[in-house]
Design a protein around this nucleic acid. Structure first.
Lengths: 126, 126
DNA sequence: GTACTTGCAAAGATTTTGCTTCCAA
DNA sequence: TTGGAAGCAAAATCTTTGCAAGTAC
């Protein structure tokens, strides 16, 4: 556990929105200007491999980057508004049931699941 | 409607697996060797914009590329085995109910939805 | 002390853009 | 004929790799 990793993990856990690698690097550099972008990518890969962060695309609303969030106890769905860009999160017991159905009917053991819906949020409908 | 577009659309619709831009280009070149890779990207962007193809990442099992499939009448879930790489598709009325719940409870009008689950398929469990 | 991590530079992979020429309608 | 599309080359974006030097334990 290096101080670079401690710093990056702290930023991800304290984030109030989804960060991509560049966002994370820029925030980290405010506290440690020598921290290299490559270290960000390597740390994200490590955290992802260990299941501590989830990787999202948010439907590539703004290019091909990936966003990261600390894994929480309960899976949730991301709703991305195609007009205003707002990202909402949504939890549902139906979603939990759906995962159970997949595990039972296909005998597929789920370790990571990503649900992203695009459309128009309540504020962006005519 | 150019012959390049006709060719690319035909390949996507006839595909028996998920193709990325390079796959598509290589298949297209067999029939029209002058077809440019850029045309593939531009055509995919157009089809995506018009909702005729869906873009997937399949959890980036092998790098950061995108995969495309012709949009079908019914949404489905992609199950990616982290060990053998097999991709399964799964349809479920629970999934339809879940979408309905989101639309009702959040008043969010869904136009595109992507569900990708990673884990271990029936053949890859101990 | 040693195995693992970092920084740096460079390369790699994927996708996009500018611009000219061409073609479908 | 004309506006949009394709081809080509080059650039932009995002991510990974090789290697020497540094650091946690």
């Amino acid at each position: 556990m290096t101080h670079q990793r401690r710093l990056l993990v702290g930023i991800i856990q304290g984030a109030d929105r989804h960060l991509d690698a560049l966002d994370l690097w820029q925030k980290a550099r405010q506290q440690d200007p020598t921290l290299n972008k490559v270290t960000v990518y390597r740390t994200l890969a490590l955290l992802k491999k260990h299941g501590l962060v989830d990787e999202l695309d948010l439907l590539h609303l703004q290019g091909g980057r990936h966003y990261y969030e600390a894994r929480t106890t309960r899976d949730h769905i991301h709703l991305a508004c195609l007009r205003c860009g707002r990202i909402q999160e949504f939890e549902s017991s139906l979603f939990e049931k759906l995962k159970g159905q997949i595990e039972r009917e296909r005998r597929f053991r789920i370790t990571v699941v990503r649900v992203e819906a695009g459309g128009y949020c309540d504020k962006c409908q005519d």
